[in-house]
């Protein structure tokens, strides 16, 4: 999958089609490295529009029919701090 941050507020974004969504569950999963690389290249080219920053790819896997990041880092990034469950996307705190 592909993630970035929104420039104006830093919010974590995920790539869906040629745009961005706020929740990992709504985003695209790239089936192979070539399509992931192509998405990253497109997103990197878009950074000149000054809407998103720092795009990068990360690995996911399917667990019980649900897409889950492989690394703990991305699990926490997608949800919010584990020590403050009332903050972050896990608490529905997203900037529109």
């Amino acid at each position: 999958m592909l993630t970035a941050n929104r420039l104006r507020d830093g919010d974590v974004l995920y790539r869906k089609g040629s745009g961005w969504v706020l929740m990992l569950a709504d985003a695209d999963v790239y089936p192979d490295q070539a399509s992931a690389d192509a998405a990253l290249a497109a997103a990197t080219a878009e950074t000149v529009r000054n809407e998103i920053i720092a795009p990068y790819l990360f690995e996911v896997r399917e667990v019980n029919g649900k897409i889950v990041p492989v690394k703990e880092r991305e699990i926490i990034r997608a949800a919010g701090p584990t020590v403050h469950p009332h903050t972050g996307k896990q608490a529905g705190q997203i900037n529109a």
Binding site: N5, D9, G10, D11, V12, I53, A54, R73, I76, R77, G80, P81, G88
Partner: peptide, 16 residues
């Protein structure tokens, strides 16, 4: 980036 860092502003895991 170097300008914001000189003013204590980082981009972290969830936000600035």
């Amino acid at each position: 980036k170097p300008l914001r860092l000189m003013n204590g502003l980082y981009l972290q895991l969830h936000a600035y």
